[in-house]
Nucleic acid binder design. Structure first.
Lengths: 147, 147
DNA sequence: TATTGTTATACTCTATAACTATA
DNA sequence: TATAGTTATAGAGTATAACAATA
């Protein structure tokens, strides 16, 4: 369908990498700062982890690359606000199982919707061809991000 | 050269926006965390601002959206490490002019090179067609970021 | 009196070390 | 004795309020 493409030259590669990195970092910053969030980034990150399923504080600390006492302090306010609940592990009395409450799930979804809306508004303003270009590029960029 | 493109449907638009936002945020996070930096993000940000030219602490505080006392504390260690220098404003005795030293400039450039290299390595591994796709998309993404 | 920058003080997020309960 | 989680304590980074020097 399309003719075979030549790889970018070293110069082109350097330029694209630099510009693309900068664009990603700027977008990321804008999304995070756009609305003065009701929830701190590290707290939101924990809610997102719990969305996928329950975890112990120790697991969360490892996933988030944070010390265990830090996770204790991070989770505290989330429990107080009714977004996370602690339950005892029936099999091992030392462990605690953290899970998202219904309110916690709603908070994650609301925050995600706000962030997506920011991006959707801006892409929506682009010319159709540019929209399709980004749709194509997204698949590649997702692979880069996942690497 | 190409046939006219139709705009994305609302569903496609929502999907692309969400996925693209996530990819940008992940890449941004990876770039920032990849090397345990010798300099904290907010300090690096100040160095980058000063790269463009001298500023007063008050200007920097406004640009970085931070309180003035915070900027005083941020700049302190940068001066101690020899990356930033303070000079008195000859026209207004209340003001201080902050500028980058040669060492400060070198630090900014080195950090930027490391970050670019991370991205360059990953784009370099892609198929030529994907490289060219990202090169095209970068221009659009930069517009979105600048908006 | 208004403005620039700093110092004083407090709160949050992070860490390491010490402690408690359980295995 | 080892492990999961918490509490105790300390170091950054942030803020607001109070202060000193200058306009």
């Amino acid at each position: 369908m399309t003719r075979p493409a030549a790889p970018l030259s070293a110069t082109e590669l350097a330029q694209v990498a630099s510009d693309l990195r900068l664009a990603c970092m700027r977008i990321s910053r804008r999304v995070r700062f756009e609305h003065v969030s009701e929830i701190a980034p590290h707290q939101f990150s924990v809610l997102v982890r719990l969305e996928a399923g329950p975890h112990t504080p120790g697991e969360l600390a490892e996933i988030e690359r944070v010390a265990k006492p830090t996770m204790t302090k991070t989770v505290g306010p989330l429990v107080e606000r009714g977004w996370v609940q602690r339950t005892a592990d029936p099999a091992d009395g030392r462990q605690v199982i953290l899970s998202l409450t219904r309110e916690g799930r709603a908070t994650v979804e609301a925050t995600r919707r706000r962030r997506d809306a920011w991006m959707r508004t801006r892409i929506g303003r682009l010319a159709p061809a540019d929209q399709r270009l980004l749709a194509e590029a997204e698949r590649v960029l997702a692979r880069v991000a996942a690497e």
